[in-house]
Design a protein around this nucleic acid. Structure first.
Lengths: 138, 138
DNA sequence: ATATAATTTGCACTATTGTTGCAATATTTA
DNA sequence: TAAATATTGCAACAATAGTGCAAATTATAT
């Protein structure tokens, strides 16, 4: 099991308190995290700006990826598969629960390919399913 | 062909300059529009707040729908199919061109259904494909 | 282990984006 | 056309995001 230390070393980043703490959060969270979640869960131990910059850096290094949502929020989640710098294998479906509002990476459900109209060349496909998650089902 | 006037009447909204102008924009634009695009293309003829409220109203009335994106922006596009109030038939794939940055509704490409893990009950599915669009292909 | 180089952080400031109350204005209805 | 209703614009506010730069931390090379 790769620790936060390993991940930072592997990606050539300095090992700092902030980065370790934020990575920890991702490692122990099943779902995706919004910027606000991270600020909340770090007890304001770090500057807002540091959180922004850390997330940016992690995305650039392929440690986390961004998840599209229908509202304006941006969500981040760990890349479970090997993601090289700027090259994400983010081909799994994301599930957003209407009840608990959690976003969950369904790592085993890959995005199906669709036939596009003539002239359109696909590079990446993302898929978001909303509904009721396993925890919230009655 | 339904005009902006028809659309507003049908949905029981007052026919105002702002609404007509913004609807025109959607009708003559192939792709999706961001809030910023609308402000730009109306020459600041309307207050920022009016644009916000108009878009909100249009979404509520089922005239336009929101498109999820990977960055934090929110995009809007006309509902081509019949969308009742709060009940969108937004089941088509959205295409974002990496070259011209336009977002295009592929109204004829419907989102495929995927098999979810046990316990997950899907309600809606959205799909975003990025790549090179018909206009930008070399 | 320690000094130096490189990176990262925090602060203050600024920019952007979205929201609300309320009076003025425009639109609809009778 | 007048009264009732709905919409707009303004001003103020709130939340979110980005930047430069000095201070502090981390990494590297003695």
């Amino acid at each position: 099991m790769e620790t936060q230390f390993d991940i930072l070393k592997r990606t050539g980043l300095s090992v700092t308190e902030g980065r370790k703490k934020i990575l920890d959060l991702f490692l122990e969270t099943e779902g995706a995290l919004a910027h606000a979640d991270i600020e909340k869960n770090t007890d304001a131990a770090f500057d807002r700006v540091t959180v922004y910059r850390t997330l940016q850096t992690f995305v650039e290094k392929g440690i986390i990826h961004q998840i599209p949502t229908t509202d304006n929020s941006v969500l981040y989640a760990l890349c479970k598969h090997d993601c090289a710098q700027g090259h994400h294998h983010d081909n799994h479906v994301h599930f957003i629960c209407n009840n608990c509002d959690k976003t969950i990476c369904l790592d085993d459900v890959i995005v199906p390919t669709v036939k596009l109209p003539k002239g359109f060349a696909p590079v990446q496909a993302a898929m978001i399913v909303t509904g009721v998650c396993d925890d919230c089902k009655a």
